[in-house]
Simulated assay, not measured.
Amino acid sequence: MTQIEQSAVPAGAGDPPPGGFPVIERMREWRSRWSAGGGVAVFNAVYLDAVERVAPDLGGAGFDDREAAALLGVRCAERYLSAVETAAAGGRPPRCWRPLLPYRRHPGVRPPQFALSGLQAHVGHDLVLAVVDTCRTLGCDPPDLEGEFERVGDLLALLEERVHDDLMPGPDALGIADPLTHLVSSWSLERAREAAWSAARTLWRLRDFPSLAEEFRQRTDAGAGLVGRLLLTPCR
């Protein structure tokens, strides 16, 4: 297996996911390990809420193992879970997740920042590699998954909506001059998804050039981490 295949395909990625959506249970397990309100715990909470809402469409009851959108959604979630499990075991997670993981409770970083930093890592890195994983599993090209990519994008949009609805302070507490207002409005999920789709197609085209593909993957990871770190700029 080439270097890029090793980095882009997690264990068991060649096999269809089992029936149901076991990643939900894994997210629930992580919820019980963290105290609420800090770092990855915030992202995990809003991600779990969003996934549970769409589980029937992305791997809930009656899940078809060959259903591409469900497979893509599972692969994407597995990337996130692999990152936190690697970090918990003392390993080195992808660079995009490293800014968020140490921020268990930073007094100057507010909950929406934790969630958006996690979302940035998930879209800018995990989703990119999940598209490649899914193409390998199904034997297709990225354009064949464009519709499925949009369906997973709907889940991510729901996640972003939960961030704004549940975590952002109310208008009485958050003035237009508040740095958090500027920081949150400077990040766009739509732009992040567009960049992820472009990166996935590029990485797929580089699959026959493993050294270039690995270099591109690393730069994608680092770029996602840079944006994620900026989103964690203290606002107090």
Rank of each mutant, 00 (worst) to 15 (best):
E78F: 14
R79I: 12
R79A: 12
R79T: 12
R79H: 14
Y80S: 07
Y80H: 10
Y80L: 12
Y80I: 09
L81N: 01
L81K: 03
L81V: 03
L81R: 01
L81A: 03
L81T: 01
L81C: 01
L81F: 03
S82N: 14
S82Q: 13
S82V: 12
S82A: 15
S82P: 08
A83G: 05
A83L: 05
A83M: 01
V84P: 09
E85R: 06
E85K: 05
E85N: 05
T86G: 05
T86Y: 06
T86S: 07
T86M: 07
A87Q: 10
A87S: 12
A88R: 12
A88C: 09
A89I: 09
G90L: 08
G90P: 08
G90R: 07
G90E: 07
G90T: 06
G90K: 10
G90A: 09
G91K: 13
R92M: 08
R92F: 08
R92Q: 11
R92G: 05
R92L: 10
R92N: 08
P93I: 13
P93E: 14
P93S: 15
P94H: 01
P94R: 02
P94C: 03
R95K: 14
R95Q: 13
R95Y: 12
R95F: 12
C96M: 05
C96H: 05
C96S: 10
W97Y: 05
W97C: 01
W97S: 01
W97V: 02
W97Q: 04
W97A: 01
W97P: 00
R98E: 08
R98F: 05
R98P: 02
R98S: 07
P99D: 10
P99L: 11
P99E: 09
P99M: 11
P99S: 11
L100Y: 10
L100D: 08
L100W: 09
L100G: 07
L100F: 11
L101N: 09
L101I: 13
P102Y: 02
P102I: 00
P102Q: 03
Y103L: 14
Y103D: 13
Y103P: 04
Y103I: 06
Y103K: 13
Y103M: 15
Y103N: 14
Y103V: 09
R104G: 00
R104S: 01
R105A: 07
R105T: 03
R105I: 00
H106I: 02
P107K: 06
P107D: 10
P107E: 11
G108R: 02
G108S: 06
V109F: 00
V109Y: 04
V109Q: 01
V109W: 03
R110Y: 01
R110V: 02
R110D: 00
R110L: 01
R110K: 00
R110G: 00
R110T: 00
P111T: 11
P111Q: 13
P111C: 12
P111R: 11
P111F: 10
P111L: 13
Q113F: 08
Q113Y: 07
Q113G: 05
Q113V: 05
Q113C: 07
Q113R: 10
F114T: 04
F114Q: 00
F114D: 04
A115W: 03
A115T: 02
A115Q: 03
A115I: 03
A115N: 04
A115C: 06
L116V: 12
L116T: 07
L116I: 12
L116H: 06
L116R: 10
L116N: 05
L116W: 07
S117H: 00
G118C: 15
G118A: 15
G118L: 14
G118H: 14
L119K: 15
L119D: 15
L119T: 15
